[in-house]
Nucleic acid binder design. Structure first.
Length: 393
RNA sequence: UCCGCAGUAGCUCAAUGGCAGAGCAUUCGGCUGUUAACCGAAGGGUUGUAGGUUCGAGCCCUACCUGCGGAG
């Protein structure tokens, strides 16, 4: 029996819609998954994610939760779902990306990564096996393999070595993952009778930076091992946009047709539109929440900076086309005041709006694909942003 | 009225007699599998006023102005 089920429901060129069933929720793809690193989507209540935003899946992070509050505490609370009360799907990142962003705090070997905590400098070790064990304790519904994510500019040779290491780690991840599924370690396990196993799902990660042939090699190695879904890692790590779009155009259509394709850590609204066009189904990104906290808001006419003084006497909403509860009630002027005053509500409200914008954009994306007009939708969406670039929106 | 202390960027304060600075605020920019309610940049000065000493004064001297404290 499978841990997840994913079926294509419509196609338009390389773009597709689908229904992803995990043991905890039904998710329409393409989907944007809000990032909830430390067991919370920063500044946003689960009630709002569930009710108004109709969000079916969020992220969590192995690295952060491992360091704080720690696996023992989460075990004592019988897993992250019970601990946090988020009962819909959760995907956990393996910690690979975080550890590698620590730079001088880490040391890499074949076995794994020795690193120092950014919180207190304490020494820790993370390996494919340990990452799988932690993610089992967290009880997440989709587990990511432990990968190496090098910076985009390391050069071909280093990229090749890295993707091969990632492939070996992927095999080790899967081996340990399989053991954990049958020994009771998975604290999120459910007994289901809807055709799903109730176990965790495991996604592999394709690396290879901007080199198309290395990307294909990484895909080959990863697909050979076999996973429930396939992720594209190592993009939006400082490379130029055309490089990312080039990789997506070439790689996404090559990826297994019958499994969800997940572009990790991306991105801006236009990135999502482009990636869907090439056949990507899942996304996550900190942009809506981080930018929300730092005062910038997304609108159908482009990004605005609520910190700008010109908004101070504006009694209109962030986006006149937006139907979210923030736009229904609060003005740009008031939101700017809250932000300037350092009020935490500013972060909460703008994060909420930004997530609403991303979720609504993806809803429109799905609708356009189903109606066979995604090409036109994409053209119009990007033209709208280009037209308004640099203008007051 | 006398004595003392203080007066430097919008605010709070630095600066051996030797290039007048910081933090906050303001304005603007950035943010892509969150080390991020964060990071960066810019604007902003007749150093209370008027004289004096000195090669050179925010700093030393004199007077005045303003504020605070004390005495009467």
């Amino acid at each position: 029996m499978k841990a997840i089920d994913w079926k294509v429901t419509a196609r338009d060129g390389n773009a597709r819609t689908g229904i992803l069933r995990t043991r905890r929720s039904v998710i329409e793809t393409p989907v944007f998954m809000p990032v909830g690193t430390q067991g919370t989507v920063k500044g946003v209540r689960f009630e709002w994610l569930e009710d108004e935003l109709d969000c079916r899946i969020i992220l969590g992070n192995t690295y952060h939760l491992f360091l704080r509050p720690g696996v023992d505490l989460i075990k004592a609370h019988r897993g992250l779902h019970k601990f946090s009360t988020w009962s819909r799907s959760r995907l956990t990142d393996s910690g690979g990306f975080q550890v590698f962003s620590l730079n001088d705090l880490r040391k890499l070997t074949e076995e794994g990564v020795q690193f120092k905590s950014h919180l207190d400098g304490s020494a820790h070790f993370l390996s494919p096996e340990i990452s799988m064990e932690i993610q089992a304790s967290l009880g997440s519904d989709i587990v990511m393999v432990f990968d190496e994510c090098p910076p985009g500019d390391v050069g071909r040779e280093a990229t090749e070595k890295s993707l091969e290491l990632t492939a070996r780690w992927a095999a080790r991840s899967k081996r340990r993952f399989s053991e954990l599924q049958s020994d009771g370690s998975d604290l999120g396990r459910l007994d289901l009778n809807d055709g799903l196993s109730g176990a965790q799902a495991l996604f592999g990660i394709i690396q290879g930076a901007g080199h198309l042939d290395l990307r294909r090699r990484s895909l080959e190695l990863t697909a050979e091992i076999g996973f429930d879904g396939y992720a594209i890692g190592g993009l939006s790590v400082g490379e130029e946009k055309p490089i990312m779009y080039g990789v997506l155009e070439d790689l996404a259509p090559q990826m297994p047709e019958s499994a969800p394709r997940y572009l990790m850590g991306v991105g801006t609204p236009e990135d999502l539109i482009e990636a869907v066009y090439h056949g990507v189904d899942m996304f996550d990104c900190v942009i809506p929440t981080r930018n929300g906290r730092t005062g910038s808001a997304f609108t159908s006419r482009g990004k605005i900076n609520l910190r700008n003084a010109k908004h101070s006497d504006d009694d209109g909403p962030i986006d006149t086309d937006c139907r979210c509860s923030v736009c229904a009630r609060y003005s740009r002027g008031y939101l700017r005041h809250l932000h300037q005053a350092g009020e935490m509500l500013a972060a909460t409200l703008v994060s909420h709006h930004n997530l609403a914008f991303f979720m609504e954009t993806m809803r429109q994306v799905r609708e356009a694909i189903k109606e066979g007009r995604y090409g036109a939708f994409r053209t119009e969406f990007l033209a709208q942003l280009k037209e308004n670039a640099g203008l007051d929106v």
